[in-house]
Nucleic acid binder design. Structure first.
Lengths: 243, 243
DNA sequence: GAAAATTGTTAAGGATTCGTAAAGCCTAGG
DNA sequence: CCTAGGCTTTACGAATCCTTAACAATTTTC
C-alpha cells in the first residue's frame, strides 16, 4: 500500500515573510506562531526568491518596499517557478502599487497598518481559495519543481531536464517525499514511514539502497550531490542545485 | 456539483453584479462590457442568490448593503451551492465588514470608491487562478474524449472510433471514473469506492479483473497500453494515446 | 592513527504485484 | 426452481522489485 499523496510532512501551514523590517517580521512570526503557523522571515529580495523556490510554502507575505531588489521583481521571479499564494504589503491607499501587484500575479494585498485579525483573515481567505479550487478541479497542484527536476504525483512521473526518469514505485515515493519537503531534512524513519508500511530498525539499510539507486538515475554523485544531500546521522534532503 | 468555473457557451467572461444602486451597476456594466465581459445586474439579495445558482458565472460582485436580505446572508446562500469567486463591495476603510466577509468565504473586496482600473485588476486577480487551474478540466462535462474514445455519462455509453462498446455496469463506471480523471492516477481503493459500495482489502483483485475485461474490449494491450496504463503499486490511469 | 560508526554500492533470491483464465456465487427474471 | 448474466474470488504464471547481506569507502571518536 502506498501513501504517495501526502502533500507535506507536517500539517502546519508554512508561511514565508519577505520584509526588511525585522520588527514587523518578528511581530508577524509571533502572532502567526501562536496560532500554529510555521513562519520563516527573510530580509532581502534574493533571499526571498531563493526560499520560495527552495522550499514548499502555503503562503508568502511580501513587502513591496525592499532594499536592493524591488518587490515587484521578487514577485515576478517567484511566479516563474511557483504558484504559491502571495500577499503583498503596501502602504495604505497606494492604489497604483496594488493594481500593478495584482496584475503581475499577487493574490491579495495587506495595508502596512494591518491589524492582526485582518492579517489572519486575509491569509485564510487566500489559502482557502487555493484549496477550494484544488478540491474543485481535483487538481491539488501535485507538482514540485527543483531546478530542472520536475516531480508529478498525479502521473507519478519525474522528469530531469527533458528526460523522463524511469523509477520503481518506492523510488518514486521516496523522491516525492523528499521533494515535498525540499530544503528540509527527512530522517530515514520518516522516509520509511511514508514510503512503506514498515517499522524502522536502526540497522535497516533499505532506504540507503534506494537513495543510492535514485542518485544513480538522477546522475547524482553522493560525494558532491546536486540533488540529494546526505546529512550524517540525520537523514537525507533534496536541495536546489542552482543556489 | 456546481463550480462556477465551467466554461459557458461563448468564451466571454460572465460577471454577475448584485447591487441595488442601479447607477453603479450601469457603470460597472458599461466599463466591463467595453472590455468584452458579459455583465448582468440584479438588485435584490434573493434575485442574486437565484441567479448565482441558476447560471454559471466567472465572478460575482456583491454589495454588502442591500435592502431586505443583507449581503453576508447572500454570500452564505451562494456558498451553499457555489464556489464562484465573490468580490464584496464595502465602504472604504470598513475593516470589520471586510474581515467578516473574507471569513465567510468572499474572495476579495472592493472599496465602494474603486477606480475602474482597480475593479479590473481585482477581477482578473480573482479569476486568474481559477481559469489557470481549471483550463483543462471540464469538470461538469458529461462527455470525456480520449483520443478516439468517447465516454458519455448521460447515456452511459462508450464509443471507440465508430464502434460502440458493450460494457457491463461496473465496467462503465470504472471507465467513467478513469475518464473523468484522465491523466491522473486512481488507486484501486478510489476506484472501488466510486464504482461499488465496498470496502477495499489489499488482497482484493476485482478491480484488476474488471480492468482486464475493459482492456480486452478496448483492444488494449496491458504491456503496452493505448488507454489504460498500470502504475505499479499505485493504481490505474487513463492516458491520451496521441500525446 | 586505529577503532568505531556511518554511509555507499553491488548482487542475489525471496517477496510483491499484476494479468488473466476459470470457477464460484449472487441476483433478477422467468 | 432454473437460468443467465455479471461480479467476485481463486489460482497460477510471469514480471518486477525490495530487502538483505556483504564489503568498500568515508567520517567521527578516542
Amino acid at each position: 500500500m502506498t501513501t504517495g499523496t501526502a502533500p507535506s510532512a507536517s500539517n502546519k501551514q508554512r508561511v514565508l515573510v519577505i520584509d526588511d523590517d525585522r520588527k514587523l517580521c518578528r511581530l508577524i512570526a509571533d502572532y502567526l506562531g501562536q496560532l500554529g503557523y510555521e513562519v520563516r522571515a527573510v530580509h532581502t529580495g534574493p533571499e526571498g526568491v531563493k526560499a520560495a523556490s527552495d522550499e514548499q510554502w502555503h503562503a508568502v507575505i511580501l513587502d513591496l518596499m525592499l532594499p536592493g531588489m524591488d518587490g515587484f521583481e521578487v514577485l515576478k521571479q517567484i511566479r516563474k517557478t511557483n504558484d504559491v499564494p502571495v500577499l503583498m504589503l503596501t502602504a495604505r491607499g497606494d492604489e497604483a502599487d496594488r493594481i500593478v501587484g495584482l496584475e503581475i500575479g499577487a493574490d491579495d494585498y495587506l495595508p502596512k497598518t494591518f491589524s492582526s485579525r485582518e492579517l489572519l483573515a486575509r491569509l485564510r481567505a487566500v489559502t482557502r481559495r487555493v484549496s477550494r479550487i484544488a478540491a474543485d478541479t481535483h487538481d491539488s497542484a501535485k507538482v514540485v519543481v527543483v531546478g530542472t527536476l520536475h516531480v508529478n504525483a498525479d502521473t507519478r512521473t519525474a522528469v530531469l531536464g527533458d528526460k523522463p526518469l524511469v523509477l520503481t514505485p518506492v523510488e518514486f515515493d521516496l523522491l516525492w517525499t523528499l521533494a515535498s519537503a525540499k530544503g528540509r531534512v527527512k530522517t530515514r524513519e520518516q522516509l520509511l514511514d511514508q514510503i512503506r508500511d514498515r517499522e524502522y530498525e536502526v540497522f535497516d539499510r533499505s532506504v540507503d539502497v534506494h537513495i543510492s539507486a535514485l542518485r544513480k538515475k538522477l546522475g547524482d554523485d553522493s560525494k558532491n550531490p546536486r540533488f540529494i544531500r546526505t546529512l550524517r546521522s540525520a537523514g537525507y534532503m533534496l536541495i536546489n542545485p542552482d543556489a
